[in-house]
Simulated assay, not measured.
Amino acid sequence: MLTRVARAGLVPLSRVMFRPVVEGRHHVPLDGPVIIAANHLSFLDSFIIPLLTPRPVAFLAKDEYFTRPGLRGHLSRTTLTAVGAVPVPRGAHRAARASLETALAVLKDGRAFGIHPEGSRSRDGRLYRGRTGVAWLALASGAPVVPVAVLGTDRVQPVGARLPRPGRVTVRFGEPLTFGPPPAGAARARRDATDRIMDAIAALSGQERADHYNKLSGTP
């Protein structure tokens, strides 16, 4: 009940604060598993997308955000739960693998899962090379991938800012991409699928491309 109340309050609040322009919402399937793959300019992205997508979207969030004590911890936990965030442990390879398994479970349950293939926020506005976890999920689950461009969140909440400020945000949903069963050369297939997804995001966002990976800094 509390989660529904919190979400009901967050949606109109986000529309007042961020005056969102939303394009292509009809591209998001209203049922069944789907991967929402978006660029990443701000900490705010993982909150804005679930509030403006026509169905609940689960993003991963560090489990420490769910266990903080006091009022701040309660507000953090309530907000993350309201937007469908899923807690995952912080760490290196083992935690990354656990995150993918958690995401796959969300998709197998017929839900929508959100991911930032760049792996971390862009600090210079460029779109970085995508990491292949998004393709692993698409090939393992058979779920379509909806590319998404979020614009303006880097001005509303720049890297390092503790709180967002009022401003306009644009969210563009592209046509779903589908991928067949993984062939024998699975690694090559994952790379090709990831590049195709990043090309679609770039076409929506208009960002300059970087030909290398962004430095990881944790989840989200």
Score class of each variant (00 low, 15 high):
55 R>P: 13
71 L>V: 05
57 V>L: 07
95 A>M: 07
47 F>A: 10
68 R>A: 15
48 I>W: 04
57 V>N: 01
99 S>G: 11
71 L>T: 02
87 P>K: 09
94 R>W: 11
76 S>Q: 05
66 F>P: 06
94 R>D: 14
53 T>H: 04
89 P>A: 08
40 H>I: 00
80 L>W: 06
97 R>N: 10
61 A>W: 11
53 T>Y: 08
97 R>I: 15
91 G>I: 06
46 S>K: 00
74 H>I: 12
69 P>A: 08
63 D>C: 06
85 A>V: 10
66 F>G: 06
68 R>V: 13
95 A>Q: 10
65 Y>V: 04
76 S>L: 08
87 P>R: 07
63 D>A: 11
61 A>C: 11
99 S>Q: 10
40 H>F: 01
54 P>N: 05
74 H>W: 15
92 A>W: 13
48 I>D: 06
48 I>V: 14
68 R>C: 13
92 A>Y: 12
52 L>T: 04
69 P>W: 04
63 D>E: 14
72 R>T: 12
67 T>H: 12
84 G>R: 00
81 T>D: 15
48 I>A: 11
84 G>A: 00
76 S>F: 08
62 K>R: 15
53 T>D: 08
101 E>C: 01
53 T>K: 02
45 D>I: 00
72 R>S: 10
77 R>F: 10
68 R>I: 12
46 S>V: 15
102 T>M: 05
60 L>E: 02
76 S>N: 08
63 D>N: 11
88 V>N: 06
51 L>P: 01
63 D>V: 09
102 T>R: 07
55 R>M: 07
96 A>W: 03
85 A>K: 11
40 H>G: 00
71 L>S: 01
74 H>N: 13
66 F>M: 10
40 H>R: 00
95 A>D: 09
82 A>D: 02
85 A>M: 12
79 T>P: 04
96 A>D: 05
90 R>Q: 12
73 G>I: 11
54 P>F: 07
102 T>A: 08
64 E>K: 12
96 A>M: 02
43 F>S: 13
60 L>R: 01
56 P>F: 02
73 G>S: 12
66 F>H: 09
43 F>V: 12
93 H>C: 01
82 A>G: 08
76 S>Y: 03
88 V>R: 05
89 P>V: 05
101 E>I: 02
68 R>G: 11
93 H>D: 07
43 F>G: 14
102 T>G: 01
71 L>G: 00
97 R>A: 14
96 A>E: 03
46 S>D: 07
91 G>F: 08
41 L>D: 03
101 E>M: 03
62 K>W: 13
88 V>E: 06
75 L>N: 12
61 A>G: 08
57 V>D: 05
91 G>E: 04
48 I>N: 04
98 A>N: 14
92 A>C: 10
93 H>R: 12
42 S>P: 01
69 P>I: 02
93 H>V: 09
83 V>H: 06
95 A>I: 05
42 S>V: 04
75 L>Q: 12
74 H>D: 13
46 S>E: 05
101 E>N: 06
94 R>A: 13
86 V>C: 01
40 H>M: 00
77 R>H: 14
